[in-house]
């Protein structure tokens, strides 16, 4: 009989004798992973949505008058003086009217009585992707609004600001819930193992007296922690995936999910969560066993 055979048999015995507390731990680990992964999934999707929003982000500078070619060149220079930009596009009154009519589609008859030059000319400024932090966009907007020909600058301030604040709040929630759930998982696993140890104090003591090595005593408990980490995180992620599928089916169609292109974790992230969970649970078991073996 080799070491691993003996250890696996010992682990089988442990599981048979303490299946109720093992199930409770498994449930706790699953719930911890589920809650953490849920917030993390929302967070990553919001970040993706933020990126997408950033792709569409452009500042519209409404002008008092239609700029001539020379003025266009001056404005272009003034804009690039502040920072490099991806694109600068001048929209004349006529182009603005055409766009608006196109946007109205079948309802464009409402424009029939309107003059074709009632919309102000504008410049569409698309900032470089690397410069798209909220503060930077704000500064850029303030700079553009101070140009002498500017009527107004728009970039969906309210919406963009709220969205960025929401993402910041969400990242705090993810960090806090993550930290708390990590602690919960480690302590739950450690205490379950400790309870098992206390319940089997006599047996473990006897094992030491008949010459069992520390590895012989410790390894089955560490394997239990490993299994709890693996199965707990797998159940948690499977539950989250089921929830995700349900939400996708239930809220499919043109809605907020469609807008955000809601996606599940990549395989790499899934593997990472499982590995992290395994590590946490194994560390929890190891800590408990170290305390016992030191006594």
């Amino acid at each position: 009989m080799n070491f691993w055979f003996a250890v696996l048999r010992q682990m089988g015995r442990n599981l048979r004798q303490t299946w109720a507390s093992q199930c409770m731990t498994l449930l706790t680990v699953s719930l911890s992973v589920l809650i953490f992964a849920f917030f993390y999934l929302i967070y990553t999707n919001m970040l993706n949505a933020g990126d997408k929003l950033g792709d569409d982000l452009r500042l519209i500078v409404y002008l008092q008058d239609e700029p001539g070619p020379e003025m266009q060149e001056q404005l272009r220079r003034k804009i690039t003086d502040f920072d490099q930009v991806q694109e600068i596009k001048f929209i004349s009154r006529a182009q603005a009217y055409e766009r608006f009519a196109k946007q109205l589609g079948q309802n464009k008859d409402v424009l029939e009585d309107m003059p074709t030059d009632f919309l102000p000319p504008s410049i569409e400024v698309t900032p470089l992707k690397t410069l798209r932090s909220l503060n930077r966009v704000k500064l850029f907007s303030e700079y553009l609004s101070k140009l002498p020909v500017t009527l107004k600058v728009q970039y969906g301030q309210d919406w963009v600001e709220r969205f960025f604040y929401f993402i910041r709040l969400l990242s705090i929630v993810v960090i806090l819930s993550g930290s708390l759930l990590i602690l919960t998982t480690v302590f739950m696993v450690a205490y379950t193992i400790r309870l098992t140890i206390m319940g089997r104090q006599a047996e473990l003591e006897l094992l030491r007296l008949v010459g069992a090595t520390n590895d012989y005593i410790r390894t089955p408990f560490m394997l239990e922690g490993l299994m709890q980490g693996f199965f707990g995180s797998t159940f948690g992620l499977v539950s989250l995936y089921s929830l995700y599928q349900w939400i996708k089916i239930r809220f499919s169609g043109p809605g907020i999910l469609y807008l955000f292109n809601f996606t599940f974790f990549t395989p790499d992230t899934i593997v990472l969560i499982i590995i992290a969970s395994i590590l946490l649970c194994t560390v929890g078991s190891y800590m408990s066993m170290q305390k016992f073996l030191r006594i």
Partner: peptide, 27 residues
């Protein structure tokens, strides 16, 4: 005695051989 009272007699005796990794048929 220090016996494991919830285990069988055979299991109690075997424990001292299991820690030395004796083969199950030998035990």
């Amino acid at each position: 005695f220090k016996l494991l009272t919830d285990r069988t007699v055979a299991e109690n005796i075997a424990i001292s051989m299991e820690v030395s990794y004796k083969k199950p048929p030998v035990i």
